[in-house]
């Protein structure tokens, strides 16, 4: 009798730990996919995170940008660490999430708006040389007709809402 009671209690304890772990995981997932948390995650993403992998090595996007702009590693670093450009990245990412997740059609930025954002961010940063500013602005002009379509075609969806 005592032995069977002990077995039942042990089974209940294991079941309780198992279910509580699932409940905690579920609540964290629900919390993370809530809109406020998505915006919070978006706000911690910097240009460097988009240009490197988890080991800190530069990815193909970094080399594409570097080759297109024809710039050195130091100049690329300057652009990646630019506070003005990182602020602009947050604005663009927030706009993408708002458009794709919240279905807020007004939040979509046009090609001109995106171009102006890049130009103003680059111009406002005193650490970027005039030569580098010109390179960024000139190259932005080349891709400006596709940039909005490219950004807002990125597949963004909430977990469980695919």
């Amino acid at each position: 009798m005592i032995k069977s009671k002990g077995i039942i209690i042990s089974v209940l304890i294991i079941l309780l730990v198992f279910l509580s772990t699932i409940a905690v995981t579920y609540s964290v997932v629900i919390n993370v996919v809530s809109n406020n948390e998505i915006y919070e995650i978006v706000n911690v993403i910097r240009i460097r995170d988009l240009m490197t992998d988890n080991n800190g090595n530069y990815n193909s996007a970094y080399y594409n940008v570097k080759n297109k702009l024809n710039i050195s590693d130091d100049e690329a670093n300057l652009l990646m660490e630019s506070s003005k450009l990182n602020e602009s990245l947050k604005i663009v990412l927030n706009s993408i999430v708002s458009y794709k997740v919240d279905n807020d059609l007004d939040s979509k930025m046009s090609n001109d708006e995106l171009y102006n954002l890049i130009v103003s961010s680059v111009n406002e940063d005193d650490n970027i040389s005039n030569n580098l500013k010109n390179k960024v602005i000139e190259n932005s002009k080349i891709y400006i007709n596709d940039i909005s379509k490219f950004l807002y075609d990125i597949d963004v969806s909430l977990l469980g809402n695919n």
């Binding site: 995650i41 911690v44 995170d49 490197t52």
Partner: peptide
Amino acid sequence: NFINSIVISNFI
């Protein structure tokens, strides 16, 4: 793999 996801995974 295409971006540095450490900031996101650390957040979670």
